[in-house]
């Protein structure tokens, strides 16, 4: 649940979601649910030449289970808060 709560904080910020099929999409995080399904808006495919079909797309829904990484904006990461939250989670809430 830690990642869910954390990603919810990032709604409205720009993130890059890298999928397990190597497709990487940059966009504004519109919403995220408990399965880490992600909705992005104003998207842009990082490697447009490799994925020309994605160029026509402005928003998308990504299945949480196919996400490999989410790259965060620098100002979206408060290391201290994340550190505390991780510890709290680790203590077994």
């Amino acid at each position: 649940m830690l990642f869910f709560s954390y990603f919810k904080e990032l709604v409205g910020k720009e993130v890059t979601v890298e999928l397990k099929n190597d497709l990487a999409i940059t966009g504004v995080l519109h919403s995220v649910d408990q399965y880490l399904n992600i909705k992005l808006e104003n998207i842009k495919v990082v490697d447009e030449i490799k994925y020309p079909h994605m160029m026509s797309v402005k928003n998308c829904f990504i299945r949480g289970s196919v996400v490999r990484y989410v790259q965060l904006p620098v100002d979206g990461v408060d290391v201290e808060i994340l550190h505390d939250a991780t510890r709290r989670e680790a203590r077994g809430n």
Binding site: L19, N21, L23, I43, P52, H53, M54, M55, S56, V57, K58, N59, C60, F61, I62, R63, S65, V66
Partner: peptide
Amino acid sequence: LSMHAISRDLEAYPSPCVYCQ
């Protein structure tokens, strides 16, 4: 169904559609 999206840019694809991976 790993991804779905709305495609409206007619230059990229001639008809508005739902694109799925």
